[in-house]
């Protein structure tokens, strides 16, 4: 049985196959970074404002809300580039 160094997702603590995010939060990070251009076009807002607005919407997915909470409290915006 392969024994690897346990890697944990920064957002939820779940096992992550590679990198700092688990599958769920990696997927969420990707769609979050891709979504910004539509909000910028519509309201001409900053990325920070964008996160706060998206967090408020009921249509927003649970995993997306979780990663926004993490980014806002930890101020760790780089994590959103973990979308490999």
């Amino acid at each position: 049985m392969p024994k690897q160094q346990a890697k944990k997702c920064l957002v939820c603590g779940s096992y992550s196959e590679e990198g700092l995010l688990c599958f769920k939060h990696r997927t969420a990070a990707k769609s979050l970074t891709e979504g910004y251009k539509y909000w910028k076009e519509a309201f001409n807002i900053s990325f920070n404002e964008y996160l706060k607005e998206v967090r408020k919407r009921s249509e927003t997915g649970t995993w997306v809300k979780e990663i926004i909470d993490y980014v806002i409290t930890s101020n760790d915006f780089n994590i959103l580039l973990e979308t490999g």
Binding site: K24, T27, A28, K30, S31, L32, E34, G35, Y38, W39, A42, F43, V54, R57, E59, T60, G61, T62, W63, V64
Partner: peptide, 11 residues
């Protein structure tokens, strides 16, 4: 997965 990672677009 699509629902949980969904980011709405404004229009």
């Amino acid at each position: 997965s699509e629902i949980n990672s969904y980011v709405p677009k404004p229009y």
